[in-house]
């Protein structure tokens, strides 16, 4: 696009962000500060993710952007179009075809490969922020690997509710060293981070932090020996494609309590339907 640098950001900024990324990859799970720029979208819409994507994007890359698992929501569509215009890269909605995937709130159901990079949009990079308001103190806790406080939170949940009540942004230990926020993905997706073949990058624009998980790194969700980590999902098959192993969204369909459970990963769902899988509400969908 004329008048713009490739992928919007100027070279100096990209260079600064790449330096941060290198450091982040070298210290898995450690938050690296960076000079976050104003981007042409509001904070909370993925300013961190978009800057990371802009600085790693090359002319030959194929970009996929997902928002809550869907490729067709406002955020996903605008960011995809933004890079299509400013970088001229190819875009896709198919997980398997993408080389760079920017995501908000989900990890695709399809297993990622070594030649792919997934970029997470992160609102709050500090996993201890709700427990310890002081940044100085949390930095010290990270430095000394002093994470008893996070377990106090889990203890409180179990004593109050009988189970850990964190359903998204479930804290993880990366490479047995750093406590990390996985961004607000559902706890259901946490196991996918463990030993993932793809490089995982995290950008928090407002909080000005970058962190990363290199490929094939151990990522463990915090738990107690007698209360092991477990994922929670709606006990239904997908209404459209019949999948029983994917993360489901609950969609209210009318005012009489009618609801539909569908895959939150739209690409996964449509791929399954194309392959002939049909759920209980599938015909309805085909008739529309």
């Amino acid at each position: 696009m004329k008048g713009y640098n490739f992928a919007y950001l100027d070279d100096q900024t990209k260079r600064m962000i790449r330096r941060g990324l290198l450091k982040a990859v070298a210290i898995p799970g450690h938050q690296v500060p960076f000079g976050s720029r104003e981007m042409p979208l509001p904070y909370g819409w993925g300013t961190g993710g978009i800057q990371v994507t802009a600085s790693i994007l090359g002319a030959g890359d194929v970009l996929k952007v997902i928002d809550q698992g869907a490729d067709d929501t406002t955020n996903a569509v605008s960011i995809r179009r933004f890079f299509a215009r400013t970088a001229g890269v190819a875009t896709t909605t198919a997980t398997a075809e993408a080389t760079v995937i920017q995501t908000r709130h989900r990890i695709p159901e399809k297993q990622l490969r070594e030649d792919q990079i997934i970029v997470y949009q992160v609102p709050q990079p500090e996993p201890l922020s709700r427990l310890e308001p002081s940044r100085i103190e949390t930095k010290r806790m990270h430095g000394l690997a002093d994470y008893g406080l996070m377990h106090v939170k889990l203890y409180e949940d179990i004593s109050r509710f009988g189970q850990v009540s964190i359903s998204y942004d479930y804290p993880v230990m990366v490479n047995e060293r750093y406590l990390m926020s996985p961004s607000p993905i559902p706890a259901f997706d946490n196991p996918k981070m463990d030993m993932m073949p793809a490089l995982q990058l995290f950008g928090a624009g407002r909080e000005k932090r970058i962190y990363a998980i290199p490929p094939w790194t151990r990522v463990k969700s915090l738990d107690f020996d007698d209360h092991p980590f477990r994922t929670i999902n709606a006990p239904h098959p997908c209404g459209l494609c019949g999948a029983t192993d994917s993360y489901l969204d609950e969609v209210v369909t009318d005012n009489h309590g009618g609801r539909l459970f569908v895959c939150s990963d739209t690409d996964h769902c449509s791929e399954r339907r194309a392959a002939g899988h049909v759920g209980t509400d599938g015909f309805q969908e085909a008739a529309e």
Binding site: D146, G148, L149, H151, V152, Y155, I158, D223, F224, D225, D226, H227
Partner: peptide, 9 residues
């Protein structure tokens, strides 16, 4: 827990 106790019971 700060000392590494990880058994809720």
């Amino acid at each position: 827990m700060a000392q590494g106790a990880r058994h809720y019971g």
